[in-house]
């Protein structure tokens, strides 16, 4: 009986290690989705849970499946998991959610992630205020880098969405200000043609057709104002995002290093 039990133990151990080895080979071949399935199997078959969790997290991250990673790490409590979880939101274009996740400003890690999320959202003043509150020694390097990034973001020339909207009173001018020259010509010609036709039809006493076309023209005119505001705001956000994205991996690695100590 004793031998039978020992044999079962050895067999199950070798089965589990074979499963993990297979998953590792898939990981090495960058077949992340298949590797996740194998690691999950091993996890539920009582393999090395910490290792499997570590590898599943890596598979999602390296496979750039941020939605999957968010789903996987939902409700995590480990600080490194929290870093992955927050960065997945940032990479997924949802800094607003990362901001909410890191609202506990008593924790230095959350304070740092909060500042990073604020940078994405264009809240430079809030970043400045919160950076002053980071006093922990191990976070000083990251603090300095965040300060530098914030300064760089502040120095950028952004287009005012309000000014774009104001200029759009003249169709196309708002788009031109926002940087979309071709669109500005298109908006100008579209509005000119529609409103020109409205007045011509009115002159010929075709009031119904004139009125119907005026409704369409109003849609295009208001669309031109709305679009100009949106275009300026979108470009500002993209400009900001491009600058931060270039440095995001540096922050990620540094935070992991600090929290793994």
């Amino acid at each position: 009986m004793k031998y039978l039990l020992a044999l079962t133990g050895i067999l199950s151990f070798s089965f589990l290690s074979a499963q993990v080895n297979f998953a590792d080979s898939l990981f090495a071949r960058q077949e992340y989705y298949r590797a996740i399935t194998e690691y999950q199997r091993s996890y539920y078959n009582d393999g090395d849970k910490d290792y499997c969790h570590f590898m599943i997290r890596n598979c999602y991250w390296l496979g750039e499946d941020y939605t999957g990673l968010i789903e996987y790490l939902k409700g995590c409590s480990d600080p490194v998991d929290h870093i992955y979880y927050s960065f997945a939101h940032l990479k997924n274009n949802r800094p607003d959610l990362a901001l909410i996740l890191n609202a506990n400003l008593a924790n230095p890690l959350q304070k740092t992630l909060y500042c990073l999320s604020c940078s994405y959202l264009g809240k430079e003043k809030e970043v400045e205020e919160n950076l002053k509150k980071i006093n922990e020694r191990e976070y000083q390097d990251i603090k300095a880098k965040l300060g530098k990034l914030n300064q760089e973001l502040k120095e950028q020339h952004y287009k005012s969405p309000y000014l774009a909207g104001g200029l759009a009173i003249v169709p196309g001018l708002g788009y031109a200000y926002a940087g979309a020259l071709q669109t500005s010509i298109s908006a100008f010609i579209t509005n000119l043609l529609i409103w020109g036709s409205v007045f011509e039809l009115g002159k010929k006493e075709l009031y119904f057709s004139s009125g119907a076309l005026a409704v369409v023209g109003t849609g295009f005119y208001l669309g031109n104002i709305y679009g100009s505001v949106n275009f300026a705001a979108r470009n500002n956000n993209n400009k900001r995002k491009n600058i931060i994205d270039k440095q995001l991996d540096v922050f990620f690695k540094e935070l992991i290093k600090v929290e793994s100590r």
């Binding site: 940087g179 669109t183 908006a187 579209t190 669309g223 679009g227 275009f231």
Partner: peptide, 15 residues
């Protein structure tokens, strides 16, 4: 929705 649609028609294929 209509504002977004008219904006898109004016932007379509440009910039």
């Amino acid at each position: 929705g209509i504002l977004k649609g008219t904006d898109r028609i004016m932007r379509c294929g440009l910039d």
